[in-house]
Nucleic acid binder design. Structure first.
Lengths: 100, 100
DNA sequence: CCGTTCTCTTTCCAATAAGGAAAGTACTTT
DNA sequence: AAAGTACTTTCCTTATTGGAAAGAGAACGG
């Protein structure tokens, strides 16, 4: 049970948590929610894709290009494991990260 | 509600969570629990002290020098805020870091 | 006394990461 | 043709990290 460095970075943790809630999310939506620039999101998204945690799908909305991000199954597993590791660490202090 | 970079680093998160549970902890105990070398713990402890989050007390056990680490009040506050920020992020995904 | 041990602290170093700015790509719209 | 959309890459500079090794100060053993 250890923290996954790919997921632990603040920006990526936010991206992954956001994607875990949704099926797919648009690049622009994620960028705005996380509050980063295009270039920063693009780089982090590539890093997550490189780790096999996120799938990047390109398509169109009308005639405009659009990119969607989606947590892959391994990405979801890694995220759950990461949260479990956080819970284990935080639990030491008497706090909890999980219900019950 | 944002992640505190001083606390977010994996090693320091573990140190702070450990200290949050105890009043004071010995350097050697923390080093072994966290699983780092003397030099690494020494550096992180200094970083936490520099941020005002940890107090470092030196004393003796018999005739041997010993160092104790303790979370300061600001350190505890920063830790609680950090955990709250983590909870907020993780909560997006439908998971929880808090009881109830 | 000298060398070793104990308990950290510092220095040195090499690797990695991260962000901002700006340029680039590939189209589409005006 | 010029400008805009939606990203992607490159460039560059700063920050962080960890391991290894050397240091520091006191105490113990022979």
């Amino acid at each position: 049970m250890h923290l996954d460095p790919v997921i632990h970075a603040p920006v990526r943790l936010q991206i992954v948590a956001l994607l875990a809630a949704a099926d797919e999310a648009e690049f622009g939506f994620v960028r705005d929610q996380v509050g980063v620039s295009d270039s920063v999101l693009s780089k982090h998204a590539s890093a997550l894709e490189g780790a096999g945690y996120v799938e990047i799908r390109k398509g169109y909305v009308g005639k405009r290009p659009r990119t969607w991000l989606k947590l892959s199954a391994p990405g979801r597993g890694a995220y759950l494991a990461h949260v479990a590791a956080l819970q284990a660490i935080v639990a030491q202090s008497g706090l909890s990260l999980t219900p019950e």
